[in-house]
Nucleic acid binder design. Structure first.
Length: 433
RNA sequence: UCCCCGAUAGCUCAAUGGUAGAGCGGCUGGCUGUUAACCAGUAGGUUGCAGGUUCGAGUCCUGCUCGGGGAGCCA
C-alpha cells in the first residue's frame, strides 16, 4: 500500500514511494523530461517525469494537462539541493482527477489589484496571498494561546447590538428585530466589561463592522478584533498587558512561520527587535515630538495618519501613546485624576508606518460620571442601563484594549494592504466574491 | 463626502491627432535539469459608456460608470 503523504511531511519519506493528492501548479517542458510543479495546500514541489519512466500516454497527458487540474501522482521523494523546498518527487504515475479548463485566469506573472480581488477565491492558492493566510492562522492560534495561558476566559460578544457604541454614522443597520433597529457590532468592549465583572479576566475575538467611507490600505468594512478586559486593572496594567501580548504573539509567529515570512520577503530582523520595554509617550510628549519634527499640530486634536507615521518612525518598536485629551476619546474613558482634561486611554502604533493596531485604556468606574457622559454625548440612557448596572453593583477599576487582527497581520507580514490579510475582504467597493 | 490617478487582447502594459502593438497566458510544434525556462509558429480587439471638436480621435474637450491611492474617521 503506497501511503498518501502531504508535502509538509516529505522529510519523513525520503527515497520512499508515496502518493500526492493535489493540483498542477505550473509546468516546464524540456522535451523528453517534464518538470511538473505540484501543490497540495501544505506546500509546493517539483515533480520530475522522464519520458522513459512512464507509459507514453501518461507522459503525453502530463505534458498537456491544464494548470490547476486536480491530480493524484505517485513517485519517489528525493532530497535535492537544487529544489527550493529541498525535495523533488520523481514521478512514476500521473492521474488527472478532474481536468481544469485551459483558461485558468491567474498566472505567475504580475496582476493588478482589481483583477486579483475579483479572483480572490483563486488568488488564495498562490504565493504571498497563500502565505499571508497561513500566518494569519498561526497568529490567531498565538493570540488564543496567550490569553489562555494568562488565565483569560473567552467570552464572545454578540454581533447584533441594539445601540451604537459611539455615534451611529459608522454602523451597519439591520432591519429584522421587532420594534427597534439593530446594528452589526463595531466593538465587543461594553460586553467585555460585563464579562470581566463576572470572570475577572476575559477576552472576545470576532468580526466587527464599520460602515466608514474609508478607502485606504488600512481599512476594511469587516475586520477581526480581539478585545481583552480585566477587572481590578489600571491604565498601567493595560499597557503592560498590551506590551507583553504583542511581544509574545510576534515571537510565536517568528518561530512558527519562518518559511512564510521568507516567501513574503519580510525583514524578520525588524520583528526580532520587538521586545519589551516599548516606548511609552504621554500625548503631551507626542505632540512635542511632532513639533520638534517641524510638523504643525495643535494640542487637543487627534493624530491623523501622517502624524502617526511620523511618531512611529522615531522608534524601531511599537510605541504606546497614553493620556489623550478627553474630548477626543470615547464617553466611557476614565478621566486622569492628575488632570481631568485627559483620559486614561492608550493607543499602540505599529512600526514602519502601519498605524494604530491597539486602542484601549482604563474605563470610567463611577456611576455619576458615566451618567453625565451619556447625557453630554447625547446618548439614550435607557440603552445603557445594563452598562450602568455594572457600576451600581460592585464597580471596580478595570480596563482593556482592542487589537485589530488584519492591521497587526499586515505589519507582521510586511503587506502593503490589509485587504490581503483577510481571506475574503469586505470593503466599501467590494462584496464579491 | 472631498482631493489626486487610472481604464487599450484573458493578464501586465506600449502606441507625436494619421494602418491597433509587445511580453506573458492559450493552442500547435521543438528541446533530458528546467527554476516566472527557452525557441518557432498561430489564434485573439466595439481602445469602460455617451456626447463633442476635427478631413481624421486610443490620443483633445464635457459628462457618466467602475477601479486605485489618499484625507476625514478609525483598529
Amino acid at each position: 500500500m503506497i501511503p498518501v503523504v502531504s508535502l509538509d511531511q516529505f522529510d519523513r519519506y525520503v527515497d520512499q514511494e508515496i502518493q500526492l493528492q493535489g493540483w498542477l501548479y505550473n509546468r516546464r517542458s524540456k522535451g523528453k523530461i517534464l518538470f511538473l510543479i505540484l501543490r497540495d495546500g501544505t506546500g509546493i514541489v517539483q515533480g520530475v517525469m522522464g519520458k522513459k519512466d512512464v507509459p507514453d500516454e501518461v507522459f503525453e497527458q502530463a505534458a498537456h494537462t491544464p494548470y490547476e487540474s486536480s491530480v493524484i501522482v505517485r513517485g519517489i521523494v528525493k532530497k535535492d539541493k537544487r529544489a527550493p523546498g529541498g525535495f523533488e518527487l520523481w514521478l512514476k504515475d500521473f492521474q488527472v482527477q478532474r481536468p481544469a479548463q485551459p483558461d485558468y485566469p491567474i498566472s505567475l506573472k504580475e496582476h493588478g489589484p482589481d483583477f486579483l480581488l475579483s479572483h480572490r477565491h483563486l488568488w488564495i492558492r498562490h504565493g504571498k496571498a497563500h502565505a499571508t493566510l497561513k500566518v494569519r492562522d498561526k497568529l490567531i492560534q498565538a493570540i488564543r494561546r496567550y490569553f489562555a495561558q494568562q488565565g483569560f476566559v473567552n467570552v464572545d460578544a454578540p454581533i447584533f447590538t441594539p445601540s451604537a457604541c459611539e455615534g451611529t454614522t459608522t454602523l451597519f443597520e439591520v432591519d429584522y428585530f421587532d420594534d427597534q433597529k439593530a446594528y452589526l457590532t463595531q466593538s465587543g468592549q461594553l460586553y467585555m466589561e460585563a464579562a470581566a465583572m463576572a470572570f475577572g479576566k476575559v477576552y472576545c475575538f470576532g468580526p466587527t463592522f464599520r460602515a466608514e467611507k474609508s478607502k485606504t490600505r488600512r481599512h476594511l468594512s469587516e475586520f477581526w478584533m480581539v478585545e481583552p478586559e480585566m477587572a481590578y486593572a489600571t491604565l498601567d496594567d493595560v499597557m503592560d498587558l498590551a506590551e507583553d501580548f504583542v511581544y509574545q504573539i510576534v515571537q510565536e509567529v517568528l518561530e512558527t512561520c519562518p518559511r512564510e515570512l521568507e516567501l513574503l520577503e519580510r525583514d524578520v530582523e525588524k520583528l526580532k527587535k520587538v521586545r519589551p520595554p516599548f516606548p511609552r509617550l504621554r500625548y503631551d510628549e507626542a505632540v512635542e515630538l511632532l513639533h520638534k519634527k517641524g510638523m504643525e499640530f495643535s494640542w487637543g486634536d487627534d493624530f491623523g495618519a501622517p502624524h502617526e507615521t511620523a511618531i512611529s518612525q522615531e522608534f524601531d518598536k511599537p510605541v504606546l501613546i497614553h493620556r489623550y485629551p478627553a474630548a477626543i476619546k470615547a464617553f466611557y474613558m476614565k478621566p486622569d485624576p492628575q488632570d481631568p482634561r485627559l483620559a486614561l486611554g492608550v493607543d499602540m502604533l505599529a512600526p514602519e508606518g502601519y498605524g494604530e493596531i491597539i486602542g484601549g485604556g482604563e474605563r470610567a468606574d463611577s456611576l455619576e460620571f458615566l451618567e453625565q457622559q451619556i447625557q453630554k454625548h447625547g446618548l439614550r440612557k435607557e440603552d445603557f442601563e445594563w452598562y450602568l448596572d455594572l457600576r451600581r453593583y460592585g464597580s471596580v477599576p478595570h480596563g482593556g484594549f482592542g487589537l485589530g487582527l488584519e492591521r497587526t497581520l499586515a505589519w507582521i507580514c510586511g503587506n502593503h494592504h490589509v485587504r490581503e490579510c483577510i481571506p475574503f475582504p469586505r470593503m466599501m467597493t467590494r462584496i464579491y466574491p
